[in-house]
Write a protein that binds this DNA or RNA. Structure first.
Lengths: 374, 374
DNA sequence: TCCAATTAATTCCGTGGTAGAAGTAATTGT
DNA sequence: ACAATTACTTCTACCACGGAATTAATTGGA
C-alpha cells in the first residue's frame, strides 16, 4: 500500500509523461527534498526511470525528467453491453495494444464470467489487473443494477477474480470513461468537465475539482431523458424530444428509415448525410441541434466550461460539428466564456479503455507491482 | 493561521453544535489522542467549551460534548443589489441578530463603500469581519463583473477594509449562499446539492463532494436562461420559456398584469393565487411547472439528489409545492431516487446570511480571534 | 455497598512524513 | 577559468499522528 504522497507522485509521473522533479514537486505540493525521498525507492525498484531528454536552450543544470518505465504494467479493460464483450489490452498508460470483441452468449453472470475469462486468455498473456465496466448502477464494485444485463447485486469482480487470479475492478461505464478522460484526456488540461457519450444510449458524467462524481445518480443515466426539443420524436419511455429520442443510433436509424423505404444503420445514415443526402442531413441536423443544446445544458448546469464528447456515435461530430457548436453557443448564457468542446474520436474503444483505466488506478492505489518491480 | 486539522476541528464543532469528542474525531478523521491534543489549546483559550449535557440513558461514562463559546464572533453580511444594501449582523453560527437594509444612493464603488460603512456603523458595534456578496463574476475577492452595479474589476473588499479596519471578504452572491447552505443548511446532511434561487433573478449554484463549485462560470448566471417551456414568455434576451422568463418576480408580475387591468407586485400575485384567483393561479402554476422542471434538470445534470430552493421568490413553494414536486418527478429519469427538495424559506435574509458565512469562513481560515480569545 | 462492565477521554511514546538550510551537480556565458 | 544559473540531494530537526496503556465517570448487578 502506497502513502498518499507516493501515489500522487507515481500518478503524476504516469499521467504527465516525462516530467522534471521540479515541476513534479510543485504539482503534488511537496518540497524538493521530500520529492527526492519519495522518488528514490521507485528509481531503485525500476518503476520510475530518468529520461535523457535534451531540454535544450535554458541556462543552468538541465532537468532530468522522470517517467514510468515504458514496459510497466499490462491491463485489460472490458465493457460489457447487452450483447457483446468489448475488450482492450493496454500498457500502464492505457494505450491500447490489443482490441477485440465478441458476441455475448448468455446474460447469466457465471456464464459471462466464463466466456470473458476464456476470451481474455485467448487474446492476451498475463495481465496485472482487469477492469470491467457495465451500464447501470455500480456501488463499491457491486453491480447493483446492470440495466442491459438484468443483473441485480452481482459481484462480478469476485467471479472474474476467482477465474483469473488477479485483481478485478468493476465500475459503471460512464464513470470509468470519465476516469479515463480525467487521467489521459481532457483532465490533463482542466480540473473539471462534463462528459457526454452518444451511441446505443446517451451517457452523462461529471468531473469536478479533479474528481469524478460517482454518486449513485452517476450511473443511473438520468440525463439521457433531458428535454431538448419540444416537438421531437418519442423515446421508449414516451418522452418527446429527450436526449435519448434524438441522439442514440436507434433514433438516427429510426428517423431516417421513416423518411425512406428501407431500414438503415446509423453509420449508413451518417454516410448518406456526408454524401449530401437531404433526408439524412435533416436527421443528422436535428440530432446536432439537440446535442448542441445538450452540451450547453451540461456546461451551464455543471458550471464547467469544458465538455467532452465520446462514444461510438461520435461520428456525428465530424459531420455536424459546426451546427452543434452553433447550437451550443446559442444556449450558452450571455457574456460567458465559450464552451470548450473536446471530442474523443476513438469511438467504442474509449469505453473499454475506461475500464482499463480503473484497473490501472486500482493497481496504483494498492501499490501492487510497484515496489516489487525488478 | 490554523493547521488543516485545527481548522477542521473548529469548523465541525461550530457547524455541528455540541458534539462529543468521539463523534468529532470520527468526523474529522483523526484518532482520539490527536483530537485531545488539538482541542486542549482551544479549551484553554476559551474558544471551545464543554456543555454539561445530560446525555441520559446510555451506559458508560457520559460524553462531554464540545461547542464553540456561544458569544464567539460577530459578523456582518451584506448583499448589494442594483438598488439596495441588505445587511445582517450575525453571531459566529450565522444566526441573524440584526437585519436592516436601505436604498443605494449611488453605484460608484467609492460611494457605495462610504454608504455601507456609515450604514454598518449605525446598525452594529464592533464586528470581526464583513462579508460582501454581489451578483456577477467575482474572482479572488475582486468584483470582475458586477452585473447589477456595472462594476468592472473593482476591489470592493479593499475599499471596505480601508474604511472599517477589519477583514472584508467579497464573493459572488450565489456562491456565498451555497456556502451558507453547505455549513448551516442542507450541507449538514448531504455532501452535495444543487441550489436554485428565485427572486429578482434566477440563481444556480452547486456543491459537490462537500465543496462549493466556484469556477468563473459559477457567478455568471448561465443557468438562468435554460429552456424550460417551449412556448413560454420571452425574457429580456429574447429566449422563449427560459428560467428567467418564467421564474423571476418580474415574470410573475408581467404575466399576471397582462391578464388584468392594472400592474401588480409578485407578492400580490401570490396572494391572489392563494385566495383562489384563477388568473393568478394560472400564472403561478406555469411558474411552478417551470421550476419543477428546472429542479429535475439541476438534479439530473449535477448528479445530485438534493436540490435546495432559496431566495425571496420562494413564496411560490408554499403555494405550488405539490405541482413543483410533481413536475420535478415527471422529469426525473426512470428508476431513480426521488429528488430531495429542501426549501430555505427565509427569503431575502438568506442572501445576506450567505455573505456573513463567507466572512465567518475567512475568519476561521485565518485563525483570527481563535487563539486570542480570553 | 462494592465490584464488574462499559464507554469516554487522556497520557505516554515511538514512528514517519515533511521542509529548511546547506551542499553538490551540471550546464551557459563571458 | 570563473561567475551565474538552475536542478537536485543530503542532513537534520520538527511535529503531527496514532497505538497502547491508563484514567475517568457512569450503569447495573450481587
Amino acid at each position: 500500500m502506497l502513502t498518499d504522497s507516493e501515489l500522487a507522485v507515481v500518478r503524476e509521473v504516469l499521467i504527465r509523461g516525462p516530467i522534471p522533479r521540479r515541476d513534479l514537486a510543485a504539482r503534488v505540493g511537496l518540497s524538493s527534498p521530500s520529492l527526492t525521498r519519495l522518488v528514490t525507492p521507485f528509481l531503485a525498484s525500476g518503476l520510475l526511470v530518468e529520461t535523457s531528454e535534451p531540454d535544450s536552450g535554458a541556462v543552468g543544470r538541465p532537468t532530468r525528467p522522470l517517467t514510468v518505465r515504458s514496459d510497466w504494467g499490462r491491463f485489460a479493460g472490458v465493457k460489457i453491453t447487452g450483447d457483446r464483450l468489448h475488450c482492450v489490452v493496454t500498457d500502464g498508460r492505457a494505450v491500447p495494444l490489443v482490441t477485440a470483441d465478441e458476441a455475448l452468449i448468455s446474460h447469466g453472470p457465471e456464464q459471462v464470467a466464463d466466456q470473458l475469462a476464456a476470451f481474455l486468455r485467448r487474446i492476451t498473456g498475463e495481465i496485472d489487473a482487469l477492469g470491467v465496466s457495465v451500464g447501470g448502477v455500480v456501488a463499491d464494485g457491486l453491480v447493483v443494477d446492470g440495466v442491459f444485463l438484468g443483473w441485480r447485486d452481482v459481484d462480478f469482480g469476485a467471479l472474474m477474480a476467482a477465474r483469473l487470479g488477479i485483481p478485478v475492478v468493476t465500475e459503471n461505464d460512464v464513470v470509468a470513461l470519465a476516469e479515463m478522460q480525467r487521467w489521459f484526456g481532457a483532465g490533463l488540461s482542466t480540473s473539471g468537465f462534463a462528459l457526454i457519450t452518444i451511441g446505443v444510449g446517451v451517457g452523462y458524467g461529471l468531473v469536478v475539482d479533479g474528481r469524478v462524481v460517482s454518486s449513485r445518480e452517476a450511473g443511473a443515466g438520468l440525463a439521457a431523458h433531458v428535454r431538448l426539443l419540444e416537438n421531437g420524436p418519442e423515446c421508449e419511455l414516451g418522452h418527446r424530444g429527450c436526449a435519448d429520442s434524438l441522439l442514440t443510433s436507434r433514433s438516427i436509424e429510426g428517423r431516417y428509415s421513416a423518411l425512406t423505404t428501407r431500414s438503415w444503420t446509423a453509420d449508413e445514415v451518417l454516410e448518406a448525410a456526408a454524401r449530401g443526402d437531404e433526408a439524412a442531413r435533416q436527421v443528422t441536423g436535428e440530432s446536432a441541434l439537440a446535442l448542441g443544446r445538450f452540451i450547453a445544458l451540461a456546461a451551464n448546469l455543471s458550471l464547467q466550461s469544458t465538455v467532452v464528447l465520446a462514444g461510438d456515435g461520435i461520428g456525428l461530430w465530424a459531420l455536424e460539428g459546426d451546427r452543434m457548436q452553433e447550437a451550443a453557443s446559442a444556449d450558452r448564457g450571455p457574456g460567458a466564456d465559450a464552451i470548450h468542446i473536446e471530442v474523443d474520436t476513438s469511438g467504442f474503444a474509449a469505453w473499454a479503455r475506461g475500464a482499463a483505466v480503473v484497473a490501472i488506478q486500482h493497481t496504483l492505489r494498492c501499490g501492487q507491482g510497484m515496489t516489487g518491480v525488478v
